[in-house]
Design a protein around this nucleic acid. Structure first.
Lengths: 190, 190
DNA sequence: AAAATGGTGTGACAATTATCACAAAATGCC
DNA sequence: GGCATTTTGTGATAATTGTCACACCATTTT
């Protein structure tokens, strides 16, 4: 049960069996159907989602159009870190892109567990730090590279994204028109 | 002494006078001349920098050109969160854009202080969370907006950036050619 | 089987941007 | 002040991208 999560947490920081037990009340397994929402715009994010299977995406709704801003796959933590941290309402949605199996961390119970076991506090800090690192890495993709290079970087670093994410969603993530991405891709395959 | 930092930390989480005292050994004030480096590419980031005065910028060096990826002003924390967290060498530089007065958090001593006072651990977590939020906010700027809109968003949310950051640096931050940014700006002032 | 749906490829044209070249303005230095 | 260096503005042109329109394909629905 929840092996992947335990492995994930132990890869970040030491975690005794006792701490792991203390963490259990904060955890709950959940299944989410494709296209269902994990977080709605306007709602406060009360959870971290550790992804066991499937993927989800975060997106803004602007002028009726979805603009994807992030994708989260197996062994990632998905959340709105800003809303989760500050208690402010979320400005974007998080939805399942495939049938999803996640482990939900409840914020309140996580804080309580953190008070009982400093190791949990430390693990939480490491999760957030890793989340921040990924955010930073994605962010620099945009500042360092052109759309063409961004696609190449995605192909190299996150090849599974191209297999599993519809081109239309990927285009809005990369910040180019769907047609342009289609052309970039066909140019590359010559 | 260090009033701003104390105010900053207390805005994030409760911090007793005792914890604040325990934190002191991890802190050191430092002055940095304009264009001097806080972090070199290839070096491991061992510090957080709380900015009291001035600003600094992070940039990659690609093909001999500087590509700016972040700007940090008064009451910000500047660091390479990824290198700081993982101990891996930094892929980018951090340099003073103005004469800089910072308070340096030493990583080792910060960890030691965190062990003595859980409040410090919590404060550290909040700092990182805030850092992650800012990172995310900047990142979404690129995915949601065109270059023109990005400039408008910067003007609105971070007006001091336009006053203090040279246009050339801002252009590479926004991901457009210097000439284009100059034209966008002149079009806006009609 | 036909029709509807969602996702993708492609052509044509307009709009935007990058690039190169150079002028003008601002800044720092002696 | 005057000179050198850095920074910013502007024109011309090529390249890239967005937009609109529609075709194509696979899957699902009726």
């Amino acid at each position: 049960m929840m092996h992947h999560l335990l492995t994930y947490l132990r890869s970040l920081a030491p975690l005794s069996d006792e701490s792991w037990q203390l963490l259990q009340p904060a955890l709950k397994r959940k299944q989410v159907a494709k296209n269902e929402l994990l977080l709605k715009e306007g709602a406060v994010c009360q959870s971290l989602y550790f992804i066991e299977k499937g993927y989800c995406r975060s997106y803004y709704l602007a002028d009726g159009l979805e603009k994807n801003t992030g994708f989260f796959f197996e062994n990632d933590i998905a959340t709105n870190i800003s809303s989760f941290g500050s208690g402010q309402p979320s400005e974007y949605f998080i939805a399942a892109g495939e049938p999803l199996e996640v482990i939900v961390f409840d914020k309140q119970r996580l804080l309580e567990a953190g008070k009982k076991a400093p190791e949990i506090e430390t693990a939480g800090r490491c999760c957030i730090r890793l989340f921040a690192s990924k955010q930073e890495a994605f962010s620099s993709l945009f500042q360092l590279y052109t759309a063409k290079e961004r696609l190449a970087a995605i192909e190299e670093r996150y090849p599974f994204m191209l297999q599993r994410v519809p081109l239309t969603q990927l285009a809005s993530f990369l910040g180019v028109a769907r047609e342009t991405l289609s052309r970039i891709r066909s140019r590359r395959h010559l």
